[in-house]
Structure formats: C-alpha cells, structure tokens
Design a protein around this nucleic acid. Structure first.
Lengths: 288, 288
DNA sequence: ACTATCACGAAAATAATTTGCAGGATTTCG
DNA sequence: CGAAATCCTGCAAATTATTTTCGTGATAGT
C-alpha cells in the first residue's frame, strides 16, 4: 500500500502533534522528503521521538524507511494533494500534463479490481458479437478504441457513438451470445443506461467502463470502475482518459491471452496485409 | 535530471568498485533503496566511504539524498532497464501495461522538444482552419483527438482518416492561413507524406506527430517527435499511443493558453450545452 | 478523586554516515 | 623505463542522525 492512502485514512485518529507532522508532509512535500528527522521535528514543533512514532504508526520500519516510501509514492502522489499554481510556461504545462497522466495511471492500478476484469474478459472472449458504445469526445474514442483493439484479435466487434443506433443495436443483439460494452466518463449518460436496460431485458451481457456507483454502473452486469477524484480542475477528463485507455489495454491484453491461438492468426493476417499494402517494410507492427 | 539517466551516462567513467555498486543498484533495485550504506557497501565489497563518494559523483548531496532520488525516479525508470518476464497472470499483465504506459510518458517528457511544441502552438493558434490527418487505428484516433481537443477552444478543425479526402483537403486548404497536422506512428505513411507535399506546395504549414527522421517527419515543417522503442509483445504495441495522447494534450493546453480568452468563452458555451442537454448535473466537465 | 492509559519530550544509547588521512595502484610524462 | 602525479580505496576517528529508555503530565474512564 502507499503512504498517502494510509495517511488519509489515519488522519482522523492522529494526535495533535502527529497531525502537525502530517500537515507538513502534505503541504510541503519537498521539504518532507529532504528533511532530516530533526528538521522535520523542529518544524512541526515536536520532538524527534514523536516523529519516529509517527512513522511507525503509519506502518514504516523507521524514519528512513518512511522517507523512502514517501519518495516512492511521491512522483505519483503529490499532485493531487497540492494543486499547484497554474503556470503557463510551456515546460511547466508539459510537466504538469505528464505528471497528471502518470497519476491517473497510478490510481488506476491502485484501484484495480481484477475480478471484474476477468469477468469482462470471459464475456468478451466468448462473445459472438461485441457492441462497443460511447458518446461525447471521450467515450466515443474509448468505444472505437475497444473496436480497434478487439477486431485485431479476430473478434467481431462494432463501435457506435450514435444514441439511436446504440438502442437499435442493443435491441438487435442476440441473447446470451452477444455482449455490449459501454463507456461513460461521467457515469450519467442516460441513453447508455437505456441501452444497457434494453440489453439486460434481452439477456445480452453488459460491461461498463465508468465511475462506480453511477447510474451507468448500476445498469451493467460487470463494471470496470474508473474513479478519479473529481471536484477541482485538477482531474480534467484528459488525464482520466489515459486511465480509460490503459484499462482498455489491459482488457484487450487479457482477452488476447485467453484466445491466444485465434488472436495470433488474425494478427498475422492483418500484418501481412499491411506489409504488402505499404512499402514492404514491416517495421510498423499493427497499423499506423 | 533523474538518477537513472545520470547513471547510464556515467557508467563508462566509473571505477571498478563504483561499477560494482552501480550494478547492484541496477540489478536489485529493491535492495538498493532499502539498504543502509553499510549493507550496500558489504554487498558490493567496498567500504562505506566509497559508496558515499559514489553518490557524490552522481550529483547527490549524501547517501540519503541518493536514496531519496533513487526512490523518486524509481517507479518510472526501472522497467525499461529490466525487460519484463512474460507472464499471463492478470495482475502481472495489468502491472506491466501500467508500467509501460508510465514509461512511455516518462520518455516523452525526457525527450520533449519544447521549441517544436511552441512552433506548432503558434501555427495552430493562428490557423483559420486546421486539418488533422491520420490513418490506421492508432493515428486516426490521434487525429480525432486533435479535433476533439481543438474545437473546444473555438478553433475550426476537421479530422479525416481517409487518404483520398486528405489529399483533396490538402489541395483545398488556403495558403498561409490553414494548417495541416498529421500523425503517423511508423513515420512511413506514404499517403500522408503526399498530403504534406501537396500542402507545402500550396504554402500551407504542416505539423507532424511522428517518429523523428522518418519520411513523414522530413515532409513536415514542424515535427513533434515521438520515438518509442516498440515492445516485442505483438499483442500490445500500444503504450506509444499514450505518449501521443499526452503530446496532443500538451499541444492543446499550450494552444489553449495562447488563445485563452476565446477558449474560455467557447468552453463555457459547450459546457452550458451539455448541462442543459443532460440532467442538469454539471459534474461532468466537458463531454462524456 | 483515583487509576489506567496515552502523548510527549529530555537525555542517553546506539547506529549510521562522513571526514581526514595514508597506503597502494594506475596513469602520465619526461 | 622510471619518477611524479593522480586517483582509488579503506581504516579509524569524528560527526551526525536516529532510536530507545524513562519519567512527567495530561486525559478519560470508573
């Protein structure tokens, strides 16, 4: 487990002095990772032993162990604690975006519900036809991405960003054979919910990539939950999208492993096609 | 700068003892971050002072500073030093994908050519119309993504994955007013190269997101270079895409800052539209 | 009000790290 | 080839950082 989560959890149970230490760590991370136990103690106006005890309490072996653990989660964790002043300097903008994207990935990994992924994998691998739905710039991209990833494995799949089409397709899907997979960043795409209900009525299994405990999540059989802390402008949909993409990537890889033989064959054929169509250079693997 | 790069660079100039220390760090990272200077020294068969000197040489203030820096770059940097063991266990697959994606982001950031981004930003911000081109599952996604990001800023933009359309559009673009931006993961999409040539003849500025020194790169005025070592796993040549997406994100953010007033207004209108169209809950920021 | 528990810091003890120094190896240059 | 210079290295001492021990005062429960 990572320190920041632990810290958030324990926060309530800490004593006054310990809270002061925690605050310093949360507010001035740079100082905290670099400081010695004495400096940290002084700044928090406590004694070094208190700091040691604080570290132990958080599950670390020692103060140095604490600092290491802190540093390790750091690159990932700092950003969402300290929303830094919005700089428009290109270097900062770039750094910021990269850091946030990495955060999103980190959090995806933290919250990974493998069981859900495996269930989804089973459904997809067995499906005779897969319908991938999503609307709006973000989710529609995810839907095409699902298509893009799965057809390469030899699966039958179509993606649609169109509500009316989605409803019709959901109605046309074959019971217990076809699978519907939908994405909604907000979790409140009511049209998608409707399509899910329709599918459920028709005994078509449904998978949702969405915020947990949202209307979309509740309407689906299997939920690949992707929850990013909302509220501030820190988590713009753009870094969330990276998490979605990684989730699709994971899902597709698991499916690929599950149906390995078939997938390898299809891939080879696709590649063949690309190579002969292009300049004979096969350095490009699977499409541009 | 991060420690791993420094370590790679200095590697040749190190003495015997120091090389031993470096090897231990590179091969058994877990041990290295957790060990005390004495343990590390013993294992490398050197004295503690040698370790201290080693740390200084790498630009750290002290051994502890070294460990902190090591821990900080760790999550990101280790993976691509040690080729992963091929496992199909879902947890490993997931971890691997996340790590690769983070690596891709890391490498994007390392190799960032800000000047190119700024040039591209200038072109895009001033463009009267933007054409975003890309073909194949990956690049066509990037093209739509460019559209998705830029139209929100109030810019006029269209994306096309269709070669014939691309050529016609390139021919129709207005000299010195319109801009063409194209993506090619492989750098050898000859149709895109043709479109770029056409644009150049017509004095339409061109921006390429592609591999550096590739045909596509050579055909463009401004190159946002994205060079990734493609993995060996044929199921998943895809972490590169995350880097592309982040690059687009950076580009779009820079453009947004450049034309801030206009962008803010447009964004507000889009949001307004989404909120009234949905259930009045504005928790979703900018599309699903 | 009494006891148990807890939080905390002072000081002592311990452990880790760095510094200064000197021997030995290696390189450089005459 | 040999002498001087330089660099690498470890030892031991000095320094610094961290942890443990122990005692005090505060707080909560009975």
């Amino acid at each position: 487990m990572d320190l920041f989560s632990t810290l958030q959890e324990e926060k309530g149970r800490l004593s006054q002095s310990e809270t002061r230490i925690a605050d310093i760590i949360l507010n001035d991370f740079e100082f905290a990772v670099n400081a010695s136990i004495i400096e940290l103690a002084e700044r928090a106006d406590v004694s070094p032993p208190t700091v040691t005890r604080f570290c132990r309490r958080l599950g670390c072996d020692s103060f140095s162990d604490f600092k290491i653990q802190l540093a390790r989660t750091a690159y990932i964790g700092v950003r969402y604690l300290k929303p830094e002043p919005q700089s428009t300097d290109p270097a900062d903008v770039a750094k910021d975006i990269v850091a946030k994207a990495q955060n999103a990935l980190y959090m995806l990994h933290q919250a990974l519900d493998l069981a859900a992924y495996e269930q989804a994998t089973d459904l997809l691998a067995k499906a005779e036809m897969i319908y991938a739905f999503g609307a709006g710039g973000n989710s529609s991209m995810i839907a095409s991405e699902i298509q893009n990833r799965l057809f390469r494995l030899g699966l039958r799949v179509t993606a649609s960003p169109d509500h009316s089409m989605q409803l019709m397709m959901a109605a046309a899907a074959k019971p217990e054979k076809d699978v519907l997979i939908g994405s909604s960043f907000s979790g409140r795409n009511t049209e998608l919910v409707r399509a899910f209900h329709l599918a459920r009525e028709g005994k078509v299994s449904t998978i949702a990539l969405t915020q947990s405990n949202s209307p979309v999540a509740r309407a689906a059989d299997v939920v690949i939950a992707i929850d990013m802390p909302e509220g501030t402008n820190i988590y713009r949909p753009t870094s969330t999208r990276i998490a979605y993409l990684a989730a699709v990537d994971i899902l597709a890889s698991l499916v690929a492993h599950k149906i390995q033989a078939q997938a390898t064959l299809t891939l080879r054929r696709i590649k063949q096609q690309l190579v002969t169509h292009r300049d004979g250079d096969d350095r490009q693997l699977l499409g541009d």
